[in-house]
Design a protein around this nucleic acid. Structure first.
Lengths: 343, 343
DNA sequence: CTTCGCTTGTCAATCGGTTGCCAAACGAGC
DNA sequence: GCTCGTTTGGCAACCGATTGACAAGCGAAG
């Protein structure tokens, strides 16, 4: 009698969690674990019959490869990160949504990290997550260029609305929307436009201002910048005084949040929007909810999220490289906050 | 001559990424790798002198332990997930922000997953991320109770605004806010209140309705429910007709988004808020931005996010268990959308 | 001076996959 | 029937950390 043959005891490999491993599959299918690995990852490497058998066993056991174990030898984690300055900024929601979708479609997991508008915190956050992700989208980075370049040496990086030499980026080109915006305001009789700038570290704020200047010059409209400001409700409120004093009949804010803050301050001061003052935002994330609803330069934020992840995946050599080059376009959405110039 | 001693060639361990490993530290400090591990993770296990030396070496090399490699033997990934039905629901922003903060403070990474309001997709999403996280917060789950119980067997779970037998949860108790709300409306002369319910799968919508009924009974005010509705702007808009036809002079919506939709439809129909109709929301996420601004039952969403992560960590035995028990309270925030009853 | 007991560091196995290398098996062509 | 070339599957090392078991080192007590 073979008392070395146990009745029903543990096979020697202790089960930590309920998850099935390739060893379980191998046993069930009667093959070597390495054969299981090949069958599942390298199509054609094993015979069709064996592969079929293994796939069936995997399905029976509801097998999901442990991402950690897989990441160790390959160095690829199948995880991407989006780093944002401020999670509560509605602009990032759309980006995150698009990124999440593109990532999960490619079998990648998305991690969100917040740097709370602080450059040093951002660097620390990135250091923390870097080892466990394959690539990073810097959505609203406040880091200096050289720091981004340094990071890019260690990790695949894509920037959003930020141009750094040699780093792939996804940019929403403000020109089309701004051009339509200035035309719209000029048609309404406005002759002086104020721009409420965003944070000085924001690359895209500068681009928006440039586009505005350019379009205004072409139309013969005066523009001037007021700023920098905090890209928040409070920032917009705080800037109202100066904007109003400037004599501008239309104010273009760096983003919707600031525009809303401005409208609020205007209301408190008894200034009517749009009768006394026209207000415009950027990003078009909230304009629809307000009353008066907000005219805004719309960008396809979801598309930007999707595309930034696609760029990342392309760099990683992960998927069909349908190099969708070129900047993302913007368009004007006219709502109630813009009206004829009072003058 | 010892030609076995190479001049400056590779030490045998190839460097995959730039990241330093405990082997590098061990070499630099002249100790065994396992000593490095203990020095960094088990305070007191090695002599103060050795620990000091090792910490210095680690700092010199800018060492960050590879989370994957660490997760493999321990089974602990130092990652938590928040699963939400819809990323664009502003209610989840606050939750995510709080959760992110609590997690990163404890040295954990946060993963956000979206189930797009679909129960089956939610289950699939969770299956996907489960192997790589230590615990999961179900923020707005649409899963049936038994499914959640099944998941809880495999993974540590905390629910948010959802009570399932035996599962730890973080609940915002609507009673205090609702009680104040009904008092407020009664004082304004309202005698009939309509409640616009949320999705039928939403546990918290039922709780809010119950609290409303209870408070209304005590005050001798009539209430009735209209629903279920989609918890969105559109859902609120669509419900306006019925709400208005009901003869109620005040409408309480399941959340702010629906309240805003309702106000919009009211405006389009020439019904003035608050003169003809008082409108109230829940969660207090957007009310401040609108005009008229929205009266809402405020819940500390950030606190809920923080607390749900704390619960998770406590269950995982990860941090100081300051069992902050008891539901989260709510309070009424009175703004412009409520006024005297027109009757 | 010896022994005991405690501290401190080392060895080696392990987590769950991946992959280079090699050998067995198999089919085809002579 | 034999040889050759190609599939196909197995063995074992490896990724970077953790950890149980154990031995060396050390001081103190007898």
């Amino acid at each position: 009698m073979t008392d070395a043959a146990p009745t029903g005891e543990i096979t020697g490999r202790r089960r930590r969690s309920g998850a099935a491993t390739i060893y379980d599959i191998a046993e069930l299918a009667g093959v070597n674990p390495s054969t299981v690995s090949r069958a599942l990852n390298q199509p054609g490497r094993v015979s069709a019959k064996t592969e079929e058998k293994i796939r069936k066993a995997a399905a029976d056991l509801n097998f999901h490869a442990n991402p950690m174990a897989r990441a160790l030898p390959t160095g690829r984690t199948h995880t991407l990160a989006v780093v944002v300055a401020d999670i509560t900024n509605p602009m990032v929601f759309g980006v995150i949504r698009g990124a999440e979708r593109a990532a999960s479609q490619a079998g990648f997991t998305l991690v969100i990290a917040e740097s709370q508008e602080s450059g040093s915190l951002e660097a620390g956050t990135i250091d923390n997550i870097a080892p466990s992700v394959d690539g990073i989208v810097l959505a609203t980075s406040r880091l200096p260029d050289e720091e981004i370049l340094r990071l890019a040496q260690r990790k695949t990086i894509v920037t959003l609305n930020r141009e750094v030499d040699g780093i792939p980026s996804v940019i929403s080109d403000p020109a089309p929307g701004v051009s339509a915006l200035v035309a719209h305001l000029a048609d309404l009789g406005h002759r002086a436009i104020a721009y409420l700038g965003g944070p000085s570290r924001s690359w895209i704020s500068g681009r928006r201002w440039e586009a505005l200047m350019h379009a205004a010059r072409e139309r013969g409209v005066a523009v001037f910048e007021i700023g920098p400001n905090s890209p928040t409700l409070t920032g917009g409120e705080a800037a109202f005084e100066r904007a109003h004093a400037s004599g501008a009949t239309a104010v273009v804010a760096y983003n919707d949040l600031m525009a809303i803050g401005l409208m609020r301050a205007a209301k408190a001061a008894g200034v009517s929007v749009p009768d006394d003052l026209s207000v415009v935002g950027f990003d078009d994330v909230l304009g629809d909810l307000l009353s008066p609803s907000l005219t805004s330069v719309h960008a396809d934020l979801t598309g930007m999220g999707t595309r930034s992840v696609a760029r990342l995946l392309a760099q990683l050599g992960a998927n069909g490289s349908h190099e969708d080059a070129g900047p993302i376009t913007t368009e004007l959405v006219i709502r109630e906050s813009t009206g004829p110039s009072p003058r």
